[in-house]
Design a protein around this nucleic acid. Structure first.
Lengths: 321, 321
DNA sequence: CTGAAAGCGCTTACAG
DNA sequence: CTGAAAGCGCTTACAG
């Protein structure tokens, strides 16, 4: 019936249609006092008729609203990211922030406007044009970089996930259990060795034990007595492969993952893992975000360049290791 | 050093600090042509000094930007929702929409401004004050309600997830396999029977087989020969319980879940399930969203009230059933 | 290469 | 109970 309108109705259109002024429309819409019932109904009817929807921009310009956080995660298909996102959502929501979630491909998100970015992608965040001084917090396992490319152009902080203590605990455990021929999984398609593989190799080397490094997904070589998967989902896959091959875990081969996924409790045997306290990560990361957004350089109140906080993984023995 | 500013710097503050006009600031920020290099540098320096961050509201008012979808999910801890959210994110992103993700507690999200809501929460969405005509699409397994409370106050559509065909296939399979004493799990804390339990009960009744209904989490009663869990995560838990009790699956007890979670491939034995094609759900739901947001009542172009589209579950036999 | 003006859609005091 | 005015922060033509 109605021809498609050339542009969306504004408050002025509603006012005209109802024969009132714009602020009377505001009153009707927000159920404010001091408006005749008949007037309100007329305005509401006009709004419905015109399919009027308030512009969040017009409103936002004039009313202080929630801040918006852009949360960038590498891959929602890996339960690691939803577990983290869930914590971030709750904590950010409690602090009055909205969360726009995106995977890297869609990360023009920030261009169109968020008040801060929390990046969980494993790759360096590149501050977009047109968003100078955008607060950015990056979370990752890489060591602190002396040169921080993000720092010159934006307010920047880090959360470093420190695998080292858990790696040492895990290797000590495996060696004590008799492991002498471990296999390490490297992320597929990586050219340079990842930090986690380096840490494991060094820890085994310190015990006089050489390691084999293979891409994740590779069948476990004969003669191996332990597999350190790249992450928990990788460990789940290794366990399935070994089960199908009829290899006893942990008797013949021990398996260790990384992440500490909640869903791991349903996998048999329950994998040993380098677990991360997701709630702690969320808390620490958001403290950095809030501090940066408020104009403080870091949660500690100091104005150091690229403040970095650490969260440690913790080795948890399951049934597989 | 810098005292905390009483209010955030605006483009006018930057202009004043750099000794230029506001549109010169815009030029510098957006790297537009027709500005002296020296001027640009001066402006950029002033912006950095004042920690200037453009207002997304000011900008949004004047430039057409991405639309924002509010995606409401019941519980990110259940992998079902991340799997769905992941699809929605990608498809919405490809269509130029941002996605604000929230769990129900935080759902004042919509108040502050989204252009549409996609609700996956299992409970009826209540349109907020101050957001008349907000397009809302609800996805759920409940049957169509003749009275749709959302419809009078907002543009509204549905996606109904239809369990019936898969339930019939599953029950036929179980009965053929010899099941005569099945247990159905009901969601905990529910007062009224859920649709899925009703469907299973009726299908078993049609085969002359009575069922027991117990709350999810209840230990499997002795004498049972099948458990229909409330969802896949529930089925994972049942499998773990049975394994610990030394019950053979599927020989002694068969187990069926609902959802078709990807992560199920790592659970032993891999559970039979009423699987949902998440990509299809996302596609169909977003078609409804886009249609409503554009002012059409439904994707089909008709202006029917509360248009509803269906997506069917599909029974997938795993190792547990 | 730079600036004065207009306008995006809304809400908040302030009058009447 | 209702309206005229001002202003939120930005960008886009248009002058010069």
């Amino acid at each position: 019936m109605n021809p498609a309108p050339r542009r969306a109705a504004t408050i002025l259109d509603v006012a005209a249609a109802a024969g009132v002024s714009r602020q009377t429309v505001t009153r009707a819409l927000h159920e404010m006092p001091g408006i005749a019932v008949a007037t309100r109904e007329r305005v509401l009817a006009a709004a419905a008729e015109l399919d009027y929807r308030p512009s969040r921009f017009g409103r936002g310009l004039v009313k202080p609203g929630a801040r918006t956080l852009g949360l960038l995660v590498a891959d929602l298909a890996n339960p690691y990211y939803p577990e983290l996102a869930s914590r971030v959502l709750r904590e950010a929501g409690a602090a009055g922030w909205h969360v726009v979630l995106a995977e890297p491909g869609t990360s023009d998100v920030v261009e169109t406007g968020v008040d801060a970015v929390l990046s969980f992608t494993g790759r360096a965040f590149v501050a977009p044009r047109g968003a100078p001084n955008l607060p950015v917090v990056e979370v990752g396992v890489e060591p602190d970089r002396a040169d921080c490319p993000g720092c010159p152009t934006s307010r920047h902080a880090r959360v470093r996930l420190d695998l080292a203590p858990a790696v040492h605990a895990a290797v000590a455990h495996l060696v004590a259990a008799g492991v002498r021929s471990p296999v390490l999984h490297e992320a597929r398609g990586r050219s340079t060795p990842s930090r986690r593989v380096g840490l494991f190799r060094d820890a085994f080397a310190a015990a006089g034990i050489p390691v084999r490094v293979v891409p994740a997904g590779t069948a476990t070589p004969a003669g191996s007595d332990a597999v350190v998967a790249f992450n928990d989902v990788g460990a789940f896959g290794v366990l399935r492969e070994l089960r199908q091959a009829g290899v006893a875990v942990p008797e013949s081969v021990r398996v260790v993952g990384v992440d500490g996924l909640t869903i791991g409790r349903y996998v048999t045997p329950r994998p040993s893992t380098l677990a991360l306290d997701m709630a702690e990560v969320a808390t620490v990361a958001l403290e950095q975000v809030f501090a940066l957004a408020e104009g403080r350089a870091s949660a500690s109140g100091t104005t150091e360049r690229c403040p970095t906080r650490r969260v440690e993984h913790r080795f948890v023995v399951g049934e597989s290791g």
